[in-house]
Simulated assay, not measured.
Amino acid sequence: MSPLKIAILVGSLRMDSFNRRLARAVERLAPDDFAFKHIQINDLPLYSQDFDAAYPPAATRLKKDIEAADGLLFVTPEYNRSVPGVLKNAIDVASRPWGTNSFAGKPGAVIGSSIGSTGTALAQQHLRNILAYLDVPTLAQPEVFIHFKDDLIADDGSIGSDGTRKFLQGFVDNYVAWIRRFAR
């Protein structure tokens, strides 16, 4: 059986992104038959309906990367109590032009990390609303709002806390079962 391909969209462009670390931690906890690809979003032009007739190459690449995936994992920080602009732009680009929504029907999940005590709860709720409109069936439970602290998750995704590792393994187990429900 070929591996299930998961497209990871990290909503942070920061080199030392806590959310990129969180994405790597999820990858490390997943079974071997899951193959993860971090989707590049830092080179996308701001969406404009003007280029619907002839999409720019970076936008076309994004759409193809999403379409090639069996499942989606959105890992988002929270900026001003909502979704970061770079992530929202990527979603707008990949869901357009009208009738060519690359996300439609692909199962996904939303997780996130922040140094704030409420984690990324509001950004995740906003993102779930957007994904519902785009026909992305989204894993509802468990919710993952990681209050990031130094040494919690290393750059390579290794987890420094047994409690966090156990919690994330529970999420990964549910996420894997969710994606397999939709596998073709």
Rank of each mutant, 00 (worst) to 15 (best):
F103D: 03
N101E: 04
V93E: 06
A69I: 13
A90C: 07
G163R: 07
I8C: 05
D173H: 04
L131N: 08
S82H: 02
Y175L: 14
I153N: 03
D162Q: 06
F74P: 01
L134A: 07
K5Y: 04
Q141D: 04
A23C: 05
G11T: 13
N174I: 00
L29M: 06
Q49K: 15
R180N: 07
I39Q: 07
I91T: 09
I159D: 00
R128F: 12
K106V: 00
I6C: 08
Y55T: 07
Q49M: 10
A7P: 01
A35C: 12
D92C: 10
S102I: 09
I159K: 08
G157D: 05
L62Y: 01
D50H: 03
G116D: 04
A121F: 14
Q125T: 15
V176N: 00
V10E: 04
E67I: 14
K64H: 08
K166F: 02
L139T: 11
S161E: 10
P56V: 15
S95W: 00
A30R: 00
Y133L: 14
S161T: 01
M15K: 11
G11N: 09
F145W: 14
A121I: 12
A69Q: 12
G85L: 09
I39A: 03
L73C: 11
V110M: 05
T118P: 03
R180Y: 05
I39E: 04
